[in-house]
């Protein structure tokens, strides 16, 4: 374990590197920004008219879109981790005695930074097309906190997946998994409208309580047990992902 906690400065250098590389990877940056925006416009203007959620559809759908944006962006961490593994960068860092934590934390923290920015931009577009959150800044902060926690969890899980994938193309598969998870959830339509067998899944998958929590916080509605379940899910995923990536890193790189 001593190897995993060596030299905290290394992690900062690695974060700086990954943030710089993210900033320069304009293709990925545009995709992770445009995709949620386009989906949001699609749902609001094409499907929204036919979906009855008891309120303006834009109000209903934005929390789900924010989560989709965060999840999709975080999932691309898998691709950058696998790329580093396949092009020899990780091996060089290992021969320089840079620890696994520093290498992975660089990717994870950069992912959180990158996706926080894109989430804010998506939120701005949402406001422009009529999304009106409740005027309650403490709740906004709480929503930001939940979203950050979700970002951390998905980013780290994504890093673990990146350690498992043999090629960057395979790692990209993780983004699809994360991108589709919001569909069988309360992101776009209320869970009550789904067939009972999907409902069973939608009610008990991690995305639903996170969305419900965001919705409750942004719209100042009662949240019930959603926040507790959301935090539990995120912390659980985070713990599993960190442990898993430590094992996978050791097995793959040594």
């Amino acid at each position: 374990m001593s190897e995993l906690t060596a030299r905290p400065g290394d992690a900062l250098v690695m974060v700086g590197r990954c943030v710089r590389l993210s900033r320069r990877n304009t293709d990925a940056l545009l995709t992770s920004l445009l995709l949620p925006v386009i989906l949001m416009l699609l749902f609001v203007y094409l499907f929204g008219g036919a979906i009855d959620t008891g309120s303006a559809y834009v109000t209903y759908v934005v929390p789900g879109v924010l989560l989709l944006c965060a999840g999709f962006g975080a999932a691309t961490t898998a691709v950058s981790v696998t790329t580093d593994l396949t092009n020899g960068v990780v091996e060089r860092l290992r021969t320089m005695d840079v620890g696994a934590t520093a290498i992975l934390a660089g990717h994870v923290v950069a992912s959180v930074v990158r996706n926080s920015v894109s989430t804010v931009l998506v939120l701005a577009v949402a406001v422009a097309i009529g999304f009106r959150p409740a005027l309650d800044p403490p709740r906004w902060l709480a929503a930001a906190g939940v979203l950050l926690l979700f970002l951390f969890a998905v980013s780290w899980l994504s890093a673990a997946f990146g350690l498992l994938a043999r090629t960057p193309e395979a790692a990209n598969g993780f983004t699809f998994l994360v991108m589709f998870l919001p569909y069988p959830s309360s992101a776009f339509v209320p869970v009550e409208t789904m067939p009972s067998w999907i409902r069973g899944f939608a009610d008990h998958q991690p995305v639903t309580p996170v969305i419900e929590t965001l919705r409750a916080l942004l719209l100042a509605t009662p949240a019930g047990s959603a926040p507790a379940r959301a935090v539990a899910w995120c912390l659980g995923i985070l713990v599993v992902a960190v442990a898993l990536s430590a094992v996978l890193f050791r097995r793959r790189v040594g």
Partner: peptide
């Protein structure tokens, strides 16, 4: 770890960041 402090490796493909 002691070995790592004394060596370096240049592998078959240049392990560099293209976008730095």
């Amino acid at each position: 770890r002691r070995v790592r402090r004394t060596i370096s490796l240049a592998g078959q493909h240049a392990a560099l960041d293209d976008h730095q």
